[in-house]
Nucleic acid binder design. Sequence first.
DNA 1: TCAGACATCCAAAGCGCTTTGAAGTGATTC
DNA 2: GAATCACTTCAAAGCGCTTTGGATGTCTGA
Lengths: 343, 343
Amino acid sequence: MNLRELSERLNLSQTTVSRALNGYPEVNEETRKRVAAAAAKFNYRPNIRAQTLATGRSMSIGHIIPFSKQNEMVNIVFADFIAGAGEVYAQHGYSMSLSLVRDEDELNAYQGVAEKGAVDGIIVHSPARDDPRISFLSDLDIPFLVHGRASEVTTPYSWLDVNNKRAIKTGTAHLLDLDHRRIGLINGEERMDFAQRRRDGYLAALTAAGITPETALMRSGEMSEPHGYASAHDMLDSTEPPTAFVASSIVSALGVRRAIEERGLVMGRDISILCFDDDISYLPNGRTTPVFTAMRSSVRAAGRRCAELLIDQIKIPQQGMATELWDAELIIGGSTGPCPKGR
Amino acid sequence: MNLRELSERLNLSQTTVSRALNGYPEVNEETRKRVAAAAAKFNYRPNIRAQTLATGRSMSIGHIIPFSKQNEMVNIVFADFIAGAGEVYAQHGYSMSLSLVRDEDELNAYQGVAEKGAVDGIIVHSPARDDPRISFLSDLDIPFLVHGRASEVTTPYSWLDVNNKRAIKTGTAHLLDLDHRRIGLINGEERMDFAQRRRDGYLAALTAAGITPETALMRSGEMSEPHGYASAHDMLDSTEPPTAFVASSIVSALGVRRAIEERGLVMGRDISILCFDDDISYLPNGRTTPVFTAMRSSVRAAGRRCAELLIDQIKIPQQGMATELWDAELIIGGSTGPCPKGR
DNA sequence: TCAGACATCCAAAGCGCTTTGAAGTGATTC
DNA sequence: GAATCACTTCAAAGCGCTTTGGATGTCTGA
């Protein structure tokens, strides 16, 4: 059942039926009811492919995910982000189009998706410091918004980011206030912009306290439980082990905790952990009594807000770039305590 | 730059240009090269909206996710599933269209998506025992595949599922072999088919061993860390606490472990845990030395296979329903041990 | 030399919708 | 009674591709 058929049955023109269905004013209320009734009766729905061709809008937002390198993107944080974004898309009648592409194909995929008109806008995930996607998308002239920032990119673009540097600086300072002097950093991959900024925050806090950073106390890699475990394990095995850790994610913090408990140490007494907490719904840190002391910022809320900002941009293209910098909140949990005496 | 423009510049018909670009044989190799060169030069890409309208195929697969009830779907397991499916889609030139819908709108969303021609096929996630979506999609006459099964649905449909009953029966039997007699079950939500089947497996193993199941030892709910913690906490507080737990997910197992360790008990010695392990990339159980004894089946592999099966079905519609039942593998880890004497 | 096979190309007809510009009604105004 | 107006409705022109059904020219074999 298509529009032509439906309009023939109703003895009306396609124009009128289309307008009746889409709520245009220039159609008799009586007629509109007849049309609506017939549409329901014949179970008619407009073909979305034809609709998007005619309107020029696809009502869908693209997310392009590189997947070759150790699943960089399709992770637990990502799931919460798209849950947030998806909610907002649904409210506005958009759907979300995910394409997983091999890293080396990524630029092509953007171009394909954008230029072909498959999507009305794009969200860029986890930018690298000098991310080529950004200038690429600017050239393509399609609305897009970056979740995060790319420090070395000079072209203006819309973004939403957590103040990662300040967050980790605050967190590290908190550990310093507890008299910890040897603090291990277990960071994400430092080609990612956010990881660099977190490292900067860590270094800034140490420097401000007059402590010389040691490369032996700084690790970076996949934000997984095993990487957290392995990194903490290594550092704890060294001759001068750290008394506290800053972990870039609650997932790696779980690994750190395992390494600590494995050697009979008590978290929060013998060794402290502070982590970045994306407030993931399936791995919550606890509201009333947080397990980990953490810098918290909800990635789901970020997903929601990114979607809103992008949809605004699609609807009102002439408005300028949107940028938002969120501050993470320090949450005191049970994983931190004063540095044990004599350490 | 569209096809008309491009063909004008080349002094060729749209037909020829289209065929040259799409690799049809009836075009001179010389001409094809000219066309390809011009397309590259003018940075031409076919408009995908027009393409899908003309071909009748949208080259995209729909996943519709209900989101109101405690984020049922957008979870860590789901992320791995779509990572797997997405890989396969990418290889075949498909993209993935996610729509998050409120539960009460879900049937409408299916109908919308399907009938409107937005997608060529649909994957159904986490079916309930009597899931209305299945007969609904059958009526819509669109290819679809269910990840999981719906026991009470009688219409035939394509599915891929893990043999959940056998998996948990095997796992529970393993604990029984270690002389555990009081075994707690921390299940997913039992309106979900897979959770029911897991419960059936648990009950079957107990019954086979001549043990009467106790409702006090059976919990179900969200498969989150806090739910695992709270359930285990409760049971351990009872007058006759269990000596072992069967957890429906590695995430809830993390919560169980926390409850155990919190009271100074040692996992694998004082209390055993066996869990279902979806082999999630960011929360791996460990390959060489698994933390948890588990029934393992990779959800990412399932995602890949579901995508393959669905694409087959789209390409060759006349073939019958595809069904696959996977067996989970028992992995011995450090979380289980013989029941302590006198318990 | 000519029919038929083959290679190459094209005009035009969709795909199913939206939207422009115009036309057909009565009712109202002057 | 003519002109104006608001209200409805419609025919037709896109949107940018794919694909059908030729058309044209070239080559082959008898």
